[in-house]
Computed example of a mutant assay.
Amino acid sequence: MPPTRVTAAALVFAAGAFTGTWLLDTGARAPAPPPQPSPSEAFASHGALTPRHRESLVRPLPPATPVRLRIPQIRVDAPLLGLRLLPDGSLATPPVNDRRIAGWYEAGTKPGAIGTAVVAGHVDTPDGPAVFYNLGALKKGDSVEVLRVDGRTAVFTIDAIEVYSRADFPSRKVYGASGRPELRLITCGGGFSEEQHAYLGNVVVYAHLARVAGREGARG
């Protein structure tokens, strides 16, 4: 196989390896630890996601580049930057010089289209709390809005928020293929080690497309 070709399985592995270790050099420089989700916000079981029937019938959108992320419950309104894999197979991170920016994996699914779209953001930077500092405060049923270049807004409903240690990050569960539009939001969490000067794991938000707002062809 040519060295430039990356299989789907390799991408899942690379992304999983990345999310278990990413942003570890950032450090807990925020004035207080970021909120962590309670066990009640996790999936009730290890089974498939189960949206309400009426929400499962939402028509998927055609692929279009996402430009902005809004999470009203935690007052996030952030521009989205495309992220690529680095030469070592890990995912690049959003720049640390702008705490407001989140990044999406641009070689993967575009939010709103069929599949699993991935958005990553820093929990903190050397300057303090960052865009996903309060991600662990979200609840099941909260909304995540992704504004797209085609003028449509893909509105996702949160199914669960879970915390994983670096050693037990479930790559297939987080990044596995889906037959419907889904979204993952990922940041550091799971406690902080002063000895290692690193977060111990990741917070992952699982969501599915619940409705679509706006109109095709609009530009903002």
Rank of each mutant, 00 (worst) to 15 (best):
D77T: 09
W104C: 07
M1C: 08
P35H: 04
L61N: 06
V131N: 09
H53T: 11
R152I: 01
A78W: 09
V146P: 01
P87Q: 10
G179H: 07
P3I: 13
R215S: 13
G136Y: 04
L209A: 01
T26Q: 14
P94C: 04
R148S: 02
D150K: 05
L81Y: 11
R5C: 12
A213G: 03
V163F: 08
P51E: 04
A48Y: 03
P39Y: 07
L86K: 14
V123C: 07
V119T: 08
G191S: 10
S38W: 08
D159I: 00
S38F: 10
A210S: 14
A78C: 11
F13E: 15
L135C: 07
P33Y: 00
P2W: 05
A160G: 09
V155N: 01
G136Q: 01
R75P: 01
L80W: 04
L209T: 01
A210K: 03
L11K: 12
N202H: 14
V96K: 03
R29S: 00
P3M: 12
G136D: 11
A44V: 10
L11A: 11
I101V: 15
R219A: 09
T65A: 13
P2K: 12
L91R: 07
F169N: 09
P72Y: 11
V123Q: 02
F156A: 01
E162F: 11
L11R: 15
F18Y: 09
V118H: 12
E194I: 00
D150T: 06
A117Q: 07
H197I: 04
G189V: 04
E55W: 10
Y199I: 01
V204L: 14
G214H: 05
I186L: 15
G128T: 04
V144R: 00
L24A: 03
S193V: 07
T21S: 12
I74E: 10
R54V: 03
E145A: 03
H46D: 12
L200S: 02
A130F: 00
A92I: 03
A137T: 05
V203S: 10
I186A: 15
F169A: 06
R172S: 13
R148M: 04
K173R: 15
P87T: 08
F132C: 07
S178D: 09
G108L: 12
Y206F: 15
A30Y: 02
A213I: 00
V96N: 08
P62H: 02
V212D: 02
N134V: 01
A198D: 06
A167M: 02
A44L: 12
S178C: 13
V205P: 05
R29D: 01
R84W: 12
W104Q: 06
I161T: 13
P126G: 09
A44N: 11
P111W: 06
S90V: 05
P129K: 03
S143D: 12
Y105W: 15
T21I: 14
V174Q: 04
I114S: 14
V149F: 01
E145T: 05
A32F: 03
T21W: 04
P33D: 00
S38R: 15
T125Y: 02
Q36E: 15
L135A: 13
R211V: 00
R166M: 08
A102F: 02
Q73S: 14
G214F: 02
T7K: 10
P111T: 13
D150G: 12
G47I: 09
S56H: 00
F169E: 10
G108K: 14
E55G: 02
D77L: 13
A117D: 09
